[in-house]
Structure formats: structure tokens, C-alpha cells
């Protein structure tokens, strides 16, 4: 009551408060309508035939695309995670703070993080598909994705390592352990949840990626038999369905599956990130 009375005396403040509340309302509205619409229209269209093993134009099955998504993700994580984590170890545990190289690496990582996915797609096409003659393939897609997620993994791993108190390292050095042993036995284990949160964030990027994969991994909706098979991930599948406009029901259903995947990934990532904060406090 007091609040309202005060606000009526001060129209400017009332207006400002109205603005922020309205803005937050709009944001919430965008979220609810986006997620709500996809769920409401999609869930009734989830049919058994969508989950058949083989894709054909009758069942428009998304299973091959789902398997392709998993394989591209796994492969790119396999390439990018060691690189990103090792890079973070160098940046945080080995290099001096005033090291020139570190500054250059930071700039490079920020540049990579800002490059749009279509530019990654062009680059992957020019290097892996054309110059290395891999053709549209699982390998070309995975390598392109690895370059794309490298800065994410590196940055989050570095944050995770930074959050480990220096007393851990001092204790380990004091007991006579070398730097390498300190890193792997003392610093890395408690940083694992933070690093995992970053890796899962990167997973989300790969799962949602479309533009960079069309011209590197291709659009064949079959389960890959080798690294050189052309594959269509779930997001690319979603693009094909919605741009063709022939299978709009299936497109709704595929959207729900993709959304559910993203929600799950997001939840796991923030649960892990929450664990670090909880552990610190």
C-alpha cells in the first residue's frame, strides 16, 4: 500500500517501474509462447512411425538423424575436449600472467567464439570437404564442429581451473609433487563439474547447429557406416522438413524432440554449474 501511494506521488518513478515490469513480462511471454507453442502443436503429432529405424518419405523417421546428431557430437567432443582442456591448463597453470602468447590466444579464442556458424560452414567446406577431399562426411562435419566449440570448452575449463584455490596447489608443491602431478591429481579433479558444464554447453551448440553442417556433413538421412558417410543431423533434418513444407506434422513433432533434447542438455549443464557454486560456498 505504502509503495503504491508513493508511486502515485511520483509519476516518473511509476512509469519507470511499469517499463521494467513490462519488459520482463515481454521476455517471459516470448519464452512461454515459443516453448509452449512447440510443445502444444508438437506433442499430439508424435507418432510411432517417426521412430522407425529406417528413414523414408512415408514415415519421415527422425531416428537416423538423431543417431547422426549423437555421432557428430561425440566425435567433435572427442577432438575438441582434450584440446580445450589442455589449452586451459596451459593458460591457467603454466603461463605467467603477463605472457604475450596468452593475450594472443585469448584474442584468437574470442574471435573464434564470435564467428557465425555459416562462416564455419564455408571454412569446413573449403578445408575438409574440398581441399582434403573428404567429401560431405561425418568427419568433415565433426571437425568443423570441433573448431566451433573449442573456444567454449577452453573458456569454461579455464574458469573452472581458476575457481580452484591456490592453497591446493601450494599444498601439493609443498609435499614435493611436480607441476604435472599437481595438475592431474590435485587441480583437475575438483574442476571436473565445471569442465563438464562447459562440455555439455558445447554439446548444445552442436545439437542445435544447422548452417555449418549442411555444407560439411551433408544431408543424407541414413545411419553412418563410416567416417566418410554423409550424415544429416536432427537440426538439418528439421530444416529440410520445414523448408520443403510437405511434412508439416512431422516437422512439429521433430521440433518437440529437438526442444526436449535442448532442455535436457540445458538442465544438466546448469545442474553441474550449480554444483560448483554450491561447492565453493
Amino acid at each position: 500500500m505504502m509503495e503504491l501511494w508513493k508511486l502515485r506521488r511520483r509519476p516518473l518513478s511509476a512509469l519507470l517501474r511499469l517499463c521494467v515490469t513490462l519488459a520482463a513480462g515481454i521476455t517471459m511471454f516470448v519464452f512461454l509462447i515459443l516453448v509452449g507453442y512447440i510443445l502444444v502443436k508438437g506433442i499430439p503429432n508424435l507418432e510411432y512411425s517417426l521412430f522407425e529405424w529406417e528413414y523414408n518419405s512415408q514415415n519421415v523417421s527422425l531416428v537416423p538423424a538423431l543417431i547422426n546428431t549423437v555421432s557428430v557430437t561425440m566425435l567433435s567432443l572427442l577432438i575438441a575436449s582434450p584440446l580445450g582442456i589442455f589449452a586451459a591448463i596451459y593458460m591457467n597453470e603454466y603461463a605467467r600472467k603477463d605472457n604475450r602468447l596468452i593475450a594472443v590466444v585469448r584474442i584468437a579464442a574470442e574471435t573464434l567464439a564470435g564467428i557465425p556458424s555459416i562462416v564455419y560452414g564455408l571454412f569446413g567446406m573449403l578445408l575438409f570437404v574440398v581441399a582434403l577431399r573428404w567429401g560431405y562426411s561425418l568427419a568433415a562435419g565433426a571437425f568443423t564442429m570441433a573448431v566451433m566449440i573449442l573456444p567454449i570448452i577452453m573458456r569454461t575449463a579455464e574458469e573452472a581451473l581458476k575457481s580452484i584455490p591456490d592453497s591446493y596447489r601450494e599444498g601439493s608443491f609443498g609435499l614435493g609433487a611436480g607441476r604435472l602431478r599437481t595438475v592431474f591429481a590435485i587441480v583437475l579433479p575438483p574442476a571436473v563439474p565445471g569442465i563438464m558444464a562447459g562440455i555439455i554447453l558445447a554439446t548444445g551448440r552442436v545439437v542445435g547447429e544447422t548452417a555449418a553442417l549442411i555444407f560439411t556433413a551433408g544431408t543424407v538421412a541414413r545411419v553412418p557406416v563410416s567416417l566418410t558417410s554423409s550424415v544429416r543431423t536432427l537440426s538439418v533434418h528439421m530444416y529440410n522438413l520445414s523448408s520443403e513444407g510437405l511434412h508439416i506434422k512431422q516437422a512439429y513433432a521433430t521440433a518437440v524432440v529437438l526442444l526436449a533434447l535442448v532442455i535436457a542438455i540445458n538442465a544438466i549443464s546448469s545442474a553441474l554449474a550449480g554444483r560448483i557454486i554450491g561447492g565453493r560456498g
Binding site: 521476455t27 515459443l34 542445435g208 530444416y239 529437438l258
Partner: peptide, 11 residues
């Protein structure tokens, strides 16, 4: 908001 950030552009 973090979920909004994670929703793929294709969606």
C-alpha cells in the same frame, strides 16, 4: 533466459 539462449536457431 538461459534456455532461450540454448534454443537452436532452427527452432
Amino acid at each position: 533466459i538461459s534456455l532461450l539462449a540454448g534454443i537452436p536457431s532452427i527452432l
